[in-house]
Design a binder for these strands. Structure first.
Lengths: 343, 343
DNA sequence: GTGAAAGCGCTAACAT
DNA sequence: ATGTTAGCGCTTTCAC
């Protein structure tokens, strides 16, 4: 069980076991069928004695298979992404893959750099939570014939496999639910739409619900989550527009939700008496704030699981099928923040 | 700018440019000093025409340098870890390194597997947020002479570079602060200590502060964050033990804090009137719950930054210096949850 | 200034 | 059942 400094190779094992490199390689790859028990034993002993470990790099180069999946996320510090990454990496492990990870900070240029860099590293597949302003670049990747799965954020028209939540439907359902609770005005607060698929879909669903289902005018506020003052202004604005009617805020994602709650807290507004609030992302603290925050729970871990399933299916089965969009169900968790108080 | 399917190699570029592979390689590595301008131009053109990208795998194999850093975290879905990972990956990028990541779920066996697997992939360094029950295994890695940095969780005695927060001192300071606010009983709630360095240090600091500074008996509750009922029982227990005195809970980390807040919420206890609470990890929602939760803010991103600095210094400078422990300062953010209400 | 050739550690025809 | 040999794509002596 000695530990060697410079690395032990298959040749060392072969020499020690008195067989050829080929036989050792066969042994390592589990091709025991035509190998004497004796050889197997000798090789096993040699491996243990030398504390041999295969060089993954050499193997990858030879096979052009790195057993690596690349993950590129817009912001790994958001709970959605970190749980997504957990889902991906847990599942990759099951298939014997490791994961390379990169964080783009929603920067298009970084996204491109990282994608190329990962391809240079010969990842076998790429799971991308795209910044959304990179469609052309992504489309150029198509001929490279490397499986690419978009996580959470689709691009239009669909050119890649995509795993996301059914946010269109759940946005509509939520708006309808809010009306059924007695709210007369629903203000939609979102980060700047840019070209981010998820933001586009949710916004459109909100508009559609307002017009087709509730017959009210959509009120959309694009906020910068880093400019607290402006956020307060928009909230005040929305409240004034709603005069004496019951009003509720719909937050387009968890980050927006947090920003709004912070502002509401500073403004000393009471939830839901002064203003109702709900929105995407049921993060662990949602139940603890005020009367509990009504939230749409997204299965981020499962999005990760499906991404990996999809990539494996591309890798091992139908490499050339039509791109698929997989939509996972969300769940509306109703809490006090949307229970109208009438007194 | 054609896009080729099968990959273009240095040989293709050489052929197209009418030079040798050697010259192309020199060009790629910026060794222009003894190369004709003409060759440079021809090579550059060939690279663009063929859309050549170097094969990182081959390069790594040849140089035994993968330009890869491995990160192994106990739970990537916790905010502490995900921000840590962000800090690490952002900084690795600066040095031209990419990161491999793995999530152990606090499972010793997985930790071992991943570490070995990453070494097989020839990562140049490893940043480990160890499960804490793996000291012997880790120590065996020492002779391999691959830089290993422990993030957040130290092992004893110090055998590896470690980057952590100054949690010993900040725990003591916090306990003293609580006393200064008028609290007479401080209950310490932690996950099972196991052999996790951070948990040991904080618990000891708490005990030390109680005994040496406040002259009160430490009250330590080890809770299972997945067993809500038991948590309620312990809280009730602590409250009863404190009879009519002002009492406050100290949560050993953010996960414990969340669990306790959930229980307190279910039990309809008022913060801080029925019970004060504070603890480690100032997560974004801390200001929004009840009167605001007093919390110790840890610089997780900077822990990541320091880990990378340290690993680079090992890689490029003093490979064989004594292991260092770097402690980053925390900050106590005082909010309403520890402001005693006397009426 | 440039190139030929060896080799990083591994696998897979193709022998035998 | 096992070994010989030729690469995977790259870098680097060493020679010219």
């Amino acid at each position: 069980m000695e530990i060697k400094k410079s690395s032990v190779t298959i040749a060392d094992v072969a020499a020690k076991a008195g067989v050829s490199k080929t036989t050792v390689s066969r042994y390592l790859n589990g091709k025991y069928e035509f190998m004497s028990e004796n050889s197997q034993k000798k090789i096993q002993t040699a491996i243990e004695d030398l504390n041999y470990r295969p060089n993954h790099l050499a193997r990858s180069l030879r096979l052009s298979k790195s057993k690596l999946i690349g993950i590129i996320v817009a912001d790994i510090s958001s709970p959605f992404s970190s749980i997504l990454v957990k889902g991906i990496s847990d599942n990759c492990k099951k298939y014997g893959y490791n994961v390379l990870i990169a964080n783009t900070d929603n920067d298009t240029h970084k996204e491109q750099e990282y994608i190329l860099s990962m391809i240079d590293q010969r990842v076998e597949g790429l799971i991308i939570n795209t910044t959304g302003s990179n469609d052309d670049f992504l489309l150029q990747l198509l001929p490279k014939n490397i499986p690419i799965i978009l996580a959470d954020r689709p691009i239009f028209p669909t050119a890649f496999d995509t795993v996301k939540t059914n946010d269109h439907q759940s946005t509509i359902d939520t708006v309808v639910y809010l009306a059924s609770e007695g709210f007369k005005k629903v203000g939609y607060f979102t980060e700047p739409i840019k070209n981010i698929g998820t933001r586009i879909i949710r916004k459109q669903a909100y508009q559609q619900a307002c017009i087709e289902k509730l017959n009210i005018t959509p009120q959309i506020y694009e906020i910068d989550v880093n400019a607290d003052i402006c956020v307060e202004k928009y909230i005040r604005n929305f409240i004034e527009s709603a005069a004496e009617e019951p009003r509720v805020i719909f937050a387009a994602n968890g980050v927006v939700m947090l920003t709004l709650l912070r502002a509401i807290n500073r403004m000393n507004l009471r939830i839901p008496r002064d203003i109702g609030i709900c929105g995407f992302d049921d993060w662990p603290w949602a139940a603890l704030i005020g009367p509990g925050i009504t939230a749409i729970s997204q299965p981020s871990y499962e999005v990760g699981t499906e991404c990996v399933k999809q990539i494996m299916s591309r890798l091992h089965r139908n490499r050339k099928a039509e791109p698929q969009v997989i939509k996972l169900p969300t769940k509306l968790i109703v809490r006090g923040s949307t229970k109208l108080i009438t007194d």
